Amino acid sequence: MKLQHHLGGLEGLGPVWTETRVFVEPWETRIFGIHTAMMALSSQLPLPATPSAFDTIWTWADLRKGAEGINPFDYFKYRYYEKWLGGISGYFIEKGYITAEELDALTEVYYADPDKALPGGGAAAIDERIIQYLVEGDSPKRDVPVGDVLSVGDKVFIKNVPTIEHTRLPGFLRNKVGTVETVYEGAYTYLCDTGPDGIGTPMPVYCVAFDPQELWPGNAEANFILYADLYSAYVLPADVAEAA
């Protein structure tokens, strides 16, 4: 997880302003809808066929990778859904659905005439598939053997795994020690293979409790616990880590 995507625990960042509205501008709802449609139309899902030409895979992980690939200085220039728009546009160009020049030309067309009708071929069938996707979902839980599983109360050491494109491990937890609070039943996959980061295939997931004094020694409030849900690829039994 690159710096701009998890600022927890960093000092001297100045005042932080948080937007509480889910959507600030009307166009942001359309970006969310496009993202949802892309997930529903992804080729790996066993859902009814549609006339859509979209035949590749798009997941939450692809959206996150697109945002995390932005230059850190550019990242802070844009609002939330502007980052989504950039990632989605880049994906369509990368996969050959449209060229950058064609996208720029269409952008100018709709700037000039915002009320111009959008293409609607096969919309009804596409809508039905999206609705089915939203109703049925795509659970990451898998019914597969998971091997050795840690127990509630076990002390664990959090690895500092290499990050290439994407990770689900916050930076401030790396090389820290916590305690297993909950062992979630079953095994859980991730939306994509993160390579050296270690997640993708089904594995146990734990809720791990951390003492803030362990995370930020001498600079944390008292009387609270921080919890994080972590894939097993990110944790080691503390005694194994000490012996290594």
Rank of each mutant, 00 (worst) to 15 (best):
F172Q: 03
R21E: 06
T29C: 01
D143K: 11
S89D: 02
E181R: 11
R168K: 15
Y234H: 08
L236N: 10
F172M: 06
P119C: 06
P114V: 02
T167S: 15
Y81G: 00
A53S: 14
D104F: 05
A37D: 02
L173V: 08
G14E: 07
D143Y: 09
E25A: 01
M203P: 01
I34F: 00
G153V: 07
H6Q: 12
Y206T: 07
F92M: 08
Y110I: 01
I164N: 09
E68Y: 13
G186A: 11
T201H: 13
T182R: 15
V144H: 06
A209F: 12
P140Y: 11
R168Q: 13
T107R: 04
F23P: 00
L230Q: 06
V183H: 09
E128I: 02
L191S: 12
A244N: 05
P114R: 12
K176M: 10
V22F: 11
S42Q: 02
D143V: 02
E28I: 00
G121L: 04
Q44L: 12
T56Q: 10
G122C: 06
L41N: 03
D115V: 03
A49T: 05
Y133S: 00
I130G: 00
S89G: 06
A61T: 01
Y234N: 09
V240N: 00
G90E: 03
Y78A: 13
M1C: 10
T179C: 00
L63H: 03
A123I: 00
T179W: 01
Y227V: 01
P72D: 09
V177G: 03
Y110N: 04
V161T: 15
